[in-house]
Design a protein around this nucleic acid. Structure first.
Length: 809
DNA sequence: GACCTGCTGCGGGTTG
C-alpha cells in the first residue's frame, strides 16, 4: 500500500478502490499501463499517488537532492490541465510535499516558460502540442533527462486523431532520452482497450487495469403525445420543449446536448420564451462563443449557479460539474460511447446514478431510445481506430527535431518504426520524407524555400531562424476551417459558409444558400460576394464531407431493434410499442424488415422514379453506396440521378424510368469492384484536393501565417491547390499527395466500413418491394432531396403539399 | 400545426 495515499485517504475518511490499489502496485513494480474506470472514481488520484510514491521512494530522506522534471502529464484540453493542477496541488499541500507542479500550455506566459526551463518543476501538466514545442527548443534533452513518467489523460480521445500520433512520436522520442521511461494512459471504456494500451505503451508487459465498478445509467425517452407516421428528418425537437420544462425544475442542474451550434441557440431562445423565469439561470456553451463567455458558463456551472446549460460536444469532456444531476440528449447521439460520455456528465460521483433523457427529434428517431437501451444492456461500445502512416505528422516531427538540436536519420528511423503509426513505413518512404524537408522533394527542388533543413556532419538541422520560427508556429495537428461571410455586393449580410464549400466554386457559378439561388461574383477579404440569380443550372452537388455519421455499432443496435418488434421482449423497449402505428403502416405499404434483411423499395411518383435502400450504415457510407449504385445503373442505360441520404438509408431519384427488379438489385449490391466503381461515381480528386490542404498544412508545406496576421484564405487555398496540381501532374507517387487520397478513402468514404456493409448485405436476404405509395421509412429521405433547393419555409410548405399529393397522410 | 442542421480540440524560442 502506498504511504501517501494511505495517509491522505485516511485523513479524508475514504477507502481506496481496488483498482486504485492495483494501479499503485503496478506502478511500484515499475510497469507501464492503461487505466480504465468510470468518470468520478478517482483515476487521477490512482495515478498521482503512484507517481509520488515512486518519487519519494528513491530518496526517502533527502528530497532536496532531486532535481529536474519527473512527470509529464498530457491532457487534450487546456481546461482539463487546470483542473488536474488543482487536484494535485491539493494533495501536495495536504501532505506538505515539495513536489512542484506547473502548467505549460499556450496560456502560459513567456516569463513562466523561461522559469520552467531554467528551474523545472517536478511535474508539468501540458498538451500534446506543448510537448512537441518543448522538443522544438534547444537543449530539450537536458530538460527531459530526468523524466520518469508520462501520463496521457483521456487517451481514448487522442488515440483516434493525429494528436494521438503526436503522443506516439513524443513517447518514442522521450524513450530514447530515458529508456526506462514509464508510460500510463487513462481512458474511458472503448471497444479496443487492449490495443489502446499497446499503442501507448509499446510494451507487451504493460498492464490494463480496469475497475469493476459499473456506472449505473438511467435512460428515459421523451415521447410526443402522438406518433407522427410520416416524419421528415430534420426537426429540432422543439415540439417536445414543453416536456423539458418540468424536468429543468425537477433537477438541480441539467445539461442539454444538441448536435449543432444553431440548434443550441434555438433551444436557448425557445426555452426563455417558454419560461421567462429561466432568464439568468440558463446559459449557452458551444465552440463559436467567445472563450470569456464559455469560461463564465463553466465557472457558474462549477459553483452550481445555473439551472441548465444548452451545449454541443464542447462540454463532452472536461471538468466535472458536481451539481449536474440530469442530462438531456436532443436528437441522435450518433454513437453509444458518445451517449455514455454525455450521460456520465450527470451523477459524477461514485455510486451515483447518471440520469439521461433522450429527446428524439422525429418519430422514427424514437427507436434510437430503444437501441441505446439495448446497446447499454449488451455493453456495446465503439472502437477507436488509430491513424497509421501519417506522413504529414512525421515530416512535422522531423522539422521539430531539426529546429532544436537536430537528428540523425538512421537513429530517427529506428525510433519512429517503434510506434504503431509508423511501424510499417519503409526506409524508402522515410527517405522521401527527408528529401521533402531538405530539398522539397523532386517537384519543388527548384525552390529554395523548401530547402528547409541542412545536413551538417550527418545531423539534420535548421539553420534559418525564420524557418525555425515558422515551424514552431505551425506545430500541431488541428487545421481549422475558415468561415467566410456571404454578402451581396451592396453589403447585405446573408450568413457564413465554410471555406471548403466556397473553394469549389468558380466566379459565375450558381449555388444554393439560405434558400436562394446565388451567383458567385468573387471572393475577397474573406467575403463571398454574390448576386441573386434565377439561373437554376450549374448547381453544386452537395457532398457534405464533414457530417458525423452514426457509428458502426450504433447502426447495429438500431437494426437489432427490428428483431424485437414482434417479440414479447419488446416490453423492455417501450419505444417500440409507441411506434407500433408507424411500423404497421410500413408493413402495410411496404415491408418491415428483420435485423438481417435489407429492404429496397422502388416507386414511381410525379417527381420521377425512386429507389430507396435502408442499410443503416450512416450517412457517409450511404452517399458512397448511392454513388456506386448510380454508376452501376448508368452502365446499362444513359441516366442521371439525384442522390439523397440520411443515417438510415438513401434514395436514387431519376426523371427517367430505370429498370430494377429483385435480381438486378442483387447485382447492383454486389461486393465486386467496389473501389473501382466508387472512383467512377464520386469525384475523388476533388475530395482529395480538399483533404490535401490539411495534409499540406500539418506537414509544413504551406504556412498558415503569423499570429494576428492570418494569411489570406485565398492565398492558402491557392497554395494548397497549386501544390496538389503540381503533384497530380508531375509526382503522383508523392507521399503527401497519396496520403490525401488515403484519408479520403478512410475517413470520408469510410471505405472499409462500406466494404463490410456490402458483404453483410450480400450474406442476407434482399427484399425488393414495388410500392404504390411512399412508405414511412422512405418519406424522411425523400423529403431530404428537396432540402437544398428551397428555403426552409418553402420547403415546409412544399412538404405539406407533397404529403397530400403523395397520399401519405 | 409542426418547422429553421451537423462538433471539438492547440498554438515561439533564442540571443543580445
Amino acid at each position: 500500500m502506498n504511504a501517501f495515499a494511505d495517509v491522505w485517504f485516511f485523513n479524508k475518511g475514504w477507502k481506496p478502490h481496488a483498482f486504485q490499489k492495483k494501479c499503485w502496485s503496478a506502478m511500484a513494480r515499475g510497469e507501464s499501463g492503461l487505466l480504465n474506470a468510470p468518470t468520478g472514481y478517482g483515476k487521477t488520484y490512482a495515478i498521482w499517488f503512484g507517481i509520488l510514491q515512486n518519487y519519494y521512494k528513491k530518496t526517502p530522506d533527502n528530497t532536496k537532492e532531486k532535481k529536474g522534471l519527473h512527470t509529464l502529464w498530457i491532457t487534450p484540453l487546456r481546461a482539463l490541465s487546470k483542473e488536474i493542477l488543482l487536484a494535485t496541488e491539493r494533495v501536495s499541500k495536504d501532505l506538505e510535499l515539495d513536489y512542484k507542479i506547473a502548467l505549460r500550455t499556450g496560456d502560459t506566459s513567456a516569463g513562466d516558460r523561461q522559469k520552467q526551463r531554467k528551474n523545472p518543476p517536478q511535474a508539468l501538466i501540458t498538451t500534446p502540442e506543448s510537448v512537441h514545442l518543448l522538443m522544438a527548443s534547444k537543449g530539450y534533452k537536458e530538460f527531459f533527462k530526468s523524466l520518469e513518467f508520462v501520463i496521457v489523460d483521456e487517451w481514448h480521445e487522442l488515440l483516434s486523431s493525429k494528436r494521438g500520433v503526436m503522443i506516439e512520436l513524443a513517447v518514442a522520442h522521450l524513450k530514447t532520452i530515458n529508456p526506462s521511461l514509464k508510460v500510463w494512459g487513462i481512458s474511458a471504456t472503448i471497444g479496443n482497450l487492449l490495443q489502446a494500451k499497446d499503442i501507448l505503451t509499446r510494451d507487451s508487459q504493460s498492464v490494463l487495469i480496469q475497475s469493476k465498478q459499473q456506472k449505473k445509467i438511467e435512460l428515459h425517452t421523451i415521447y410526443p403525445d402522438e406518433v407522427e407516421k410520416y416524419p421528415w428528418s430534420g426537426h429540432l425537437g422543439i415540439r417536445l420543449l414543453p416536456k423539458v420544462l418540468p424536468l429543468l425544475h425537477q433537477y438541480t442542474t441539467t445539461l442539454l446536448f444538441t448536435n449543432t451550434r444553431s440548434q443550441a441557440e434555438i433551444w436557448y431562445q425557445r426555452l426563455l420564451e417558454a419560461d421567462p423565469e429561466l432568464a439568468g439561470q440558463i446559459a449557452l456553451h458551444h465552440g463559436s462563443l467567445s472563450e470569456e463567455l464559455r469560461l463564465w458558463v463553466e465557472d457558474s456551472l462549477h459553483e452550481g449557479l445555473l439551472k441548465a446549460v444548452i451545449c454541443t460536444s464542447s462540454l463532452d469532456l472536461g471538468v466535472d460539474f458536481r451539481s449536474v444531476d440530469c442530462v438531456i440528449q436532443i436528437g441522435s447521439p450518433k454513437g453509444i460511447a458518445r451517449f455514455l460520455q454525455r450521460a456520465g456528465r450527470s451523477g459524477h460521483r461514485p455510486e451515483e446514478t447518471s440520469v439521461i433523457y433522450f429527446l428524439p427529434t422525429h418519430s422514427l428517431e424514437t427507436m434510437e431510445g430503444a437501441s441505446l437501451r439495448y446497446a447499454l444492456s449488451e455493453k456495446m461500445v465503439e472502437q477507436r481506430l488509430p491513424y497509421i502512416r501519417s506522413f504529414d505528422m512525421l515530416i512535422q516531427f522531423m522539422m521539430t527535431l531539426a529546429v532544436s538540436d537536430g537528428f540523425q536519420a538512421e537513429a530517427l528511423y529506428n525510433e519512429v518504426i517503434q510506434t504503431h503509426c509508423y511501424e510499417s513505413i519503409s526506409p524508402d518512404e522515410f527517405n522521401e520524407c527527408l528529401q521533402l524537408i531538405t530539398q522539397g522533394g523532386s517537384s519543388l527542388y527548384a525552390y529554395d524555400e523548401f530547402h528547409k533543413v541542412v545536413i551538417e556532419d550527418g545531423l539534420f538541422k535548421v539553420t534559418s531562424r525564420r524557418i525555425a520560427m515558422q515551424h514552431r508556429l505551425s506545430i500541431g495537428a488541428i487545421v481549422s476551417d475558415m468561415m467566410l461571410l456571404v454578402k451581396f455586393k451592396k453589403g447585405k449580410y446573408l450568413g457564413s459558409v465554410e471555406e471548403w464549400f466556397v473553394s469549389r466554386l468558380k466566379e459565375g457559378d450558381v449555388f444554393w444558400f439560405s434558400g436562394r439561388a446565388l451567383q458567385l461574383v468573387h471572393i475577397k477579404n474573406n467575403e463571398v460576394i454574390v448576386r441573386p440569380t434565377t439561373q437554376k443550372t450549374g448547381l453544386i452537388p452537395s457532398w457534405q464531407g464533414g457530417r458525423l455519421p452514426i457509428s458502426v455499432d450504433y447502426g447495429k443496435a438500431i437494426r437489432h431493434m427490428f428483431q424485437e418488434i414482434g417479440k414479447p421482449s419488446r416490453r423492455t423497449y417501450p419505444e417500440l410499442a409507441f411506434l407500433q402505428p408507424l411500423f404497421k403502416e410500413q408493413a402495410k405499404r411496404s415491408y418491415l424488415p428483420q435485423e438481417n434483411e435489407l429492404l429496397t423499395e422502388y416507386i414511381k411518383t410525379k417527381y420521377g422514379f425512386h429507389l430507396f435502400i435502408y442499410p443503416y450504415e450512416g450517412k457517409l457510407v450511404h452517399e458512397g453506396m448511392a454513388a456506386i449504385l448510380a454508376y452501376r445503373i448508368s452502365r446499362n442505360q444513359k441516366i442521371t440521378f439525384t442522390i439523397a441520404s440520411n443515417d438510415y438509408g438513401f434514395e436514387l431519384l431519376s426523371e427517367d424510368d430505370f429498370f430494377v427488379d429483385e435480381t438486378f438489385v442483387q447485382e447492383l449490391l454486389s461486393v465486386e469492384n467496389i473501389v473501382e466503381d466508387i472512383k467512377n461515381g464520386v469525384n475523388i480528386r476533388e475530395m482529395a484536393k480538399r483533404t490535401f490542404r490539411d495534409v499540406a498544412s500539418v506537414s509544413g508545406l504551406i504556412f498558415n501565417g503569423y499570429p494576428g496576421k492570418q494569411m489570406k484564405t485565398k492565398h492558402l487555398q491557392a497554395n494548397a491547390s497549386l501544390f496538389f496540381s503540381v503533384f497530380d501532374e508531375n509526382e503522383p507517387s508523392n507521399l503527401l499527395y497519396r496520403q490525401a487520397y488515403d484519408e479520403v478513402y478512410d475517413f470520408q468514404l469510410e471505405i472499409q466500413r462500406m466494404q463490410l456493409a456490402f458483404q453483410r448485405i450480400n450474406s442476407h436476404p434482399i427484399i425488393f418491394k414495388h410500392l404504390e405509395k411512399l412508405s414511412p421509412f422512405a418519406f424522411p429521405i425523400f423529403s431530404e432531396s428537396f432540402r437544398s433547393k428551397y428555403s426552409n419555409e418553402d420547403w415546409q410548405a412544399r412538404l405539406n403539399k407533397l404529403k397530400k399529393e403523395l397520399d401519405v397522410e
